[in-house]
């Protein structure tokens, strides 16, 4: 149902995504460099603070690549989630005038962010070569992890964008929530230093298992912790299921309320 709708409207999805990508790169002088510079600068700052000033254990991984490997997918998560959340409200004119499946709006924002992510990833490959990290068969588990992450973003965005139509505070609250979420995710520190006691609660954050998984499969060449991934995947599917149901339920109210 969800995918059939998307397939039938793939042209709109494509054009709306293209519109966002083009508009973003046409407006700024540095254009494409912004998406590369942002995680890069964060990585540099984190490296200075957390490996030079405060010693954060990294399971033996050099701090720059330790943090970059997490910052890159996190950057995708946070930009996709926040742009998708405001996507419906930002297109109120269209929503009041023409009908096509509303999930196209958040999805096109997510895909536009994915495009940024792919561009920013090119620099990651340079890092891998510099640190002489071997890509093995296990590294391809990253694709599975990435798919879980994608579904999580879709679920959260469907819910967030619909809720934003009803309550404009969602937009303001979101920046704050994402910031806290980042500290609740093993980005500047490894998952291994999280106390055993709070681990069951900690892992309910699906991004925790995913980010930890990326480090394991790409940098350390280890299999991911399947228990963690299982928890992440279950939470993700639950979130997607209920978000999609909620979205469908309120979808026809958008034009009246927006």
């Amino acid at each position: 149902m969800f995918f059939k709708n998307l397939y039938n409207n793939r042209e709109i999805l494509y054009q709306l995504t293209l519109r966002q990508i083009k508009a973003r790169y046409k407006q700024s002088v540095l254009g494409i460099f912004w998406v590369i510079l942002k995680p890069l600068f964060m990585m540099i700052i984190f490296t200075i603070i957390f490996s030079k000033m405060v010693k954060v254990p990294t399971d033996g991984i050099p701090y720059p690549i330790f943090s970059y490997c997490a910052l890159l997918p996190w950057q995708f998560f946070s930009s996709a989630f926040s742009t998708a959340t405001s996507s419906l409200v930002g297109s109120s004119n269209l929503i009041q005038q023409i009908y096509f499946p509303r999930e196209i709006f958040p999805l096109s924002s997510i895909i536009a962010s994915l495009f940024d992510f792919l561009i920013a990833s090119t620099i990651f490959i340079t890092f891998l070569i510099y640190y002489k990290i071997n890509i093995t068969f296990i590294s391809f588990y990253a694709i599975l992890l990435f798919m879980i992450q994608g579904l999580l973003i879709i679920g959260l965005s469907l819910f967030g964008s619909a809720l934003n139509v009803f309550y404009r505070d969602v937009g303001h609250a979101l920046q704050f929530i994402i910031q806290i979420w980042m500290y609740a995710t093993p980005i500047i520190y490894p998952l291994s230093i999280v106390p055993e006691k709070i681990l069951p609660v900690y892992l309910l954050n699906p991004m925790a298992g995913i980010i930890d998984g990326y480090r394991k499969v790409i940098i350390q060449g280890l299999s991911p912790n399947w228990t963690y991934i299982g928890i992440s995947a279950s939470v993700t599917l639950l979130c997607l299921f209920f978000s999609y149901k909620y979205f469908r339920k309120v979808e026809m109210k958008f034009a009246d309320l927006i």
Partner: peptide, 28 residues
């Protein structure tokens, strides 16, 4: 529907790009 001025258009995009965008929204 004849979409109101501006709603279907993005100001930064060219007339051509907007034509394709607008037509896609109409289902083409």
């Amino acid at each position: 529907p004849l979409i109101q001025v501006g709603a279907g258009f993005h100001p930064e995009l060219t007339g051509k790009e907007n034509t394709y965008l607008n037509a896609a929204i109409m289902g083409l």
